[in-house]
Amino acid sequence: MKFLRITMLSALLFCHTAFALELDDAKQNGLVGEQENGYLGAVVDRADVMALIGEINVKRKAKYIELANKNNITLEQVEKLAAKKAFEKTASGHYLKHDGEWVKK
């Protein structure tokens, strides 16, 4: 019985990983885009999209805090710089949120 539970758990974890949304795919498919605040936003409201955004934005914020502390500047300054860089690096056809509206670059 214990072996069966471990096998089922492994299978569930594998399935979750196999179907997990990847950032590049999400951008390519117009599901997410870069925002003016330095964080990723949802172009399409779906559970998997929201989960991806949450995961990415937690990592971004941690890095932004680290950079702010290291460079003796505010978190808001880092977020603004990150947004500028993200907008510049965004590929043509991907979404950016500008003045509250999603637009394709």
Rank of each mutant, 00 (worst) to 15 (best):
A51Q: 11
G33I: 06
A86T: 04
A47C: 01
I6V: 15
A11V: 13
R5C: 11
Y64P: 05
L4D: 04
L23R: 07
F14C: 12
E34F: 04
H16A: 15
K27A: 03
L52T: 05
V44D: 06
H98Q: 15
A11D: 03
T17Q: 14
D45Q: 09
V44E: 13
A82E: 04
E22K: 13
C15D: 09
H94G: 01
Y95A: 09
I53D: 04
M1Y: 02
F87I: 00
K85F: 07
E22P: 00
F87P: 02
V44A: 06
I73F: 06
L13C: 11
E79S: 15
A26Y: 05
A51Y: 04
N37R: 07
Q77W: 08
G93F: 13
K85Q: 13
A62M: 06
E76D: 15
I6A: 06
V49S: 02
G38Y: 02
A42K: 04
K63E: 10
G54K: 06
R46H: 09
H98M: 12
D45N: 10
F87Y: 10
L52N: 06
W102Q: 10
N57G: 09
A91Q: 13
L96I: 05
G41Q: 07
K70N: 10
N69L: 02
K84A: 14
A47D: 10
L9K: 10
K89H: 13
I53H: 01
E36K: 12
E66L: 12
M1N: 01
T74H: 05
Q35L: 09
K89L: 15
K97E: 14
L31C: 02
K89Q: 15
V44I: 13
R46T: 06
N29Q: 15
T74Y: 05
L9C: 15
G54R: 00
K70P: 03
R5E: 10
E55W: 08
A18Y: 03
N57K: 06
I53G: 03
E36G: 08
K97P: 09
L31N: 01
L13P: 04
T17W: 09
L81I: 13
N69A: 06
E22N: 09
W102P: 06
A86K: 07
N71T: 07
R60F: 07
I65Y: 02
I65H: 04
H98V: 15
I65W: 05
Q28A: 12
K61I: 05
S10N: 12
V43N: 08
L67D: 10
K84S: 14
G41F: 07
F3A: 11
E22C: 00
E66K: 12
V103S: 11
R60P: 00
Y64N: 02
